[in-house]
């Protein structure tokens, strides 16, 4: 469906070059939800933006690599052709719905704009209105007619995100990229939005790239997971496998810092099983360490980790890890 091949992306900041993505590859299969997990600044949002060529030219660019959508390289498409895919067959929703919706247009207008843009059957204005209401009902808005006439600031965060989703789905896309779709929302709303996304994915047969820093969300929604660290994918497997047999020390660290379901409920009184944080900090992207980028924080670091970045190896079937000590 969608394949990212050896993508390198650079940013320019204060005269320095920052390597935001280094040799990143991934495959999204039809009807699957692929999770991309990592701490903030690891390059996961950059990945989302570069798929649709949304990185502003002044800030950075794709240096090399391919992004294949149904065999076509999106990076090589003319602008005109790209606009027929972007927002049409591949849609994206962002982290903060409040800043992502244009404050000066009514929400209905903003959805109508997408509808008109990717209008396949030349709908009349009356039909467009009906279609907007249908979409708003699809994302479970209580009063679609009121919502349509509201401005974004009159809606709550959860409602705004629903509008964003409705807008993204208006073109009946095949792929939905969701970049931290719930991070900016209240905890209770997060769950609703997540459930909505899962349900819509099944109902509409969407393929979804879900970008998040939260393994809890991955467990609920994703079939497969890629774990990113410092602009590179360090581990990739189906969700069950990652949770039960994490092979990369970074993935292990992330999982250990996550409260398990029972503990989250009872607020662990057992002092020995306290949540562990990964020691150290995410490396400065303009000044990355040598070799395996995780080695300064890794509990299992050995001399061999330092000179060279490890290759991605298939340790168990369909379980890929970028760690020389994996499987020891």
């Amino acid at each position: 469906m969608l394949e990212v091949k050896n993508l390198w992306v650079e940013f320019y900041k204060g005269g320095k070059i920052i390597q935001a993505l280094r040799d990143t590859s991934l495959i999204l299969k039809r009807n699957e939800v692929l999770g991309i997990v990592g701490e903030s600044g690891c390059g996961k949002s950059t990945l989302a933006l570069s798929i649709l060529k949304l990185i502003p030219e002044k800030e950075g660019k794709v240096v090399s690599g391919k992004i294949l959508f149904k065999g076509e390289d999106l990076l090589r498409l003319s602008d005109e052709k790209l606009l027929k895919i972007r927002g049409d067959r591949i849609s994206i929703i962002f982290q903060d719905p409040f800043t992502s919706l244009n404050p000066v247009f009514r929400t209905g207008n903003q959805i109508a704009e997408s509808l008109n843009l990717h209008n396949k059957q030349n709908l009349s204005s009356h039909q467009i209105e009906k279609e907007i209401i249908r979409l708003l009902e699809l994302v479970k808005m209580d009063k679609p007619k009121d919502t349509m006439l509201s401005y974004p600031h009159q809606l709550s965060g959860g409602m705004q995100q629903r509008v964003m989703i409705a807008m993204a789905l208006s073109s009946d896309p095949e792929i939905l990229i969701a970049d931290e779709p719930t991070t900016a929302l209240d905890v209770t709303i997060q769950k609703e939005i997540l459930n909505l996304l899962t349900e819509l994915q099944k109902r509409l047969g969407l393929s979804v790239v879900l970008i998040t820093h939260d393994f809890g969300i991955v467990a609920q929604t994703c079939q497969r997971v890629s774990v990113m660290y410092a602009g590179i994918i360090v581990e990739e497997a189906v969700t069950w496998e990652i949770f039960h047999n994490p092979l990369h020390p970074y993935t292990k660290g992330l999982l250990e810092s996550l409260p398990s379901r029972e503990e989250a409920g009872s607020f662990s009184r057992d002092e020995k099983r306290r949540l562990k944080a990964i020691p150290g900090q995410v490396p400065d992207p303009s000044n990355l360490p040598s070799g395996c980028k995780f080695h300064p924080r890794c509990p299992k670091v050995i001399e061999e980790c330092k000179p060279q970045e490890p290759r991605l190896r298939e340790i168990v079937q369909n379980h890929w890890v970028r760690c020389i000590r994996a499987g020891d």
């Binding site: 972007r86 962002f94 244009n102 843009l117």
Partner: peptide, 11 residues
């Protein structure tokens, strides 16, 4: 962000 959204729509 909303300018990015507008671009993402395919405008």
């Amino acid at each position: 962000d909303y300018v990015r959204t507008a671009r993402a729509k395919g405008l």
